[in-house]
Write a protein that binds this DNA or RNA. Sequence first.
DNA 1: AATAGATTTAATCATTTGTTTAAATCTATT
DNA 2: AATAGATTTAAACAAATGATTAAATCTATT
Lengths: 210, 210
Amino acid sequence: MKKRETARTLDLSTEARIKQAARAVFYRKGFAATRTRDIAEEAGINLALLNYYFRSKGKLFEIIMLETLSDFLANIRGVINDESTSLECKIEQIAAGYIDLIRREPEIPFFLLSEIRSNAGVFFERIPIGKIVKSSVFIRQYREAAANGKIAEPNPLHFIMNFIGMILFPFIASPVLKEIGSLDAEAFDRLMEERKKRIPLWINSLMKPT
Amino acid sequence: MKKRETARTLDLSTEARIKQAARAVFYRKGFAATRTRDIAEEAGINLALLNYYFRSKGKLFEIIMLETLSDFLANIRGVINDESTSLECKIEQIAAGYIDLIRREPEIPFFLLSEIRSNAGVFFERIPIGKIVKSSVFIRQYREAAANGKIAEPNPLHFIMNFIGMILFPFIASPVLKEIGSLDAEAFDRLMEERKKRIPLWINSLMKPT
DNA sequence: AATAGATTTAATCATTTGTTTAAATCTATT
DNA sequence: AATAGATTTAAACAAATGATTAAATCTATT
């Protein structure tokens, strides 16, 4: 039952191919709609190998989900607690960092939201996203700026909805937006690249007191 | 096989209960993750009745989807082609109209995006959303305003991403936002109510040329 | 009340799908 | 080359799930 600890195993060829295929299919179809046979086919492996290497569909999914979340959170954790950067700077870093990350894997935002939605309880027990955000330097700086009259909107939640929404919504709604704009994947990607620079500008003008 | 055309049938009690239950479950879990037995249980009916009234899970889903889309589009079609209202007025109407609609059924945006994503081809053949938007009075007015220097951003797609994103994203990401803000359903709803007024203001300041 | 047709139920069917098993094949070590 | 253990395969199992069937029950009409 145990995997052998040899060169053949260490190069992870089969195991890695299964994970890669699982990631692609889970991202595209979500947990409920993907069949283990989909993953096996995408990976070009015998169906039984999935269970040989990962025990079950659920275990494999959990691994993919944790890795995905880890990448996703790693990106933000460093930025939002940096005492040495200003609010404006953080906004630029977050917009650019997230858009770059997601451009490489455009299905991640929808995937994460979809699975969080069907399993919110378990999720927030493991990843205390509320604590992380509320106790961040970023939020402290936001409140200070609002108190000093530099920002009109006192509720950081409205700000988060607008800011993160501007970043994520285009990816979440990409099929509709591509249809509306008659965009192919490349043209869409160019638009997202543009937004890296423009979102901070828009956010800036939107937050300023009139 | 045919349903009887009598008082008992016309009050639609059983058929309507199945549809209502199907709507609730499909909205919550999506097509792939809902089992016909879920719907039967939610409706308090025998499983066979679902097929008696609607032939199949797929047919029932299609009905729910068409009704949902119809409500969703009805809301916007009238507004965006009204020659008698200004761009600013349309923005206010769309924000208020959509937020009110979605507050009553907060799962609709995610549901629609989720199912469009897994079936984009079929979807856009039936509902030419691209045509509807591109040929709308709204887009014409937007282009005019951009040409006259009243609006800084010339690409209406960026505008749509920002505007519709501000409206829909909070609902799409509501589990995360509730967690971050420690909000119960009622507090979340109050925030959405606030946004009806504020989104037009934000959009206004964001679009203005500097 | 009797009848015909609509509605409902319990049981079953057939397929899909996650998982397991037992045998075959491959690989490193002796 | 022989062996032991890791990897892979084909086949099958068991549970879940969409759908159907045949009988029972209800309802309107006569």
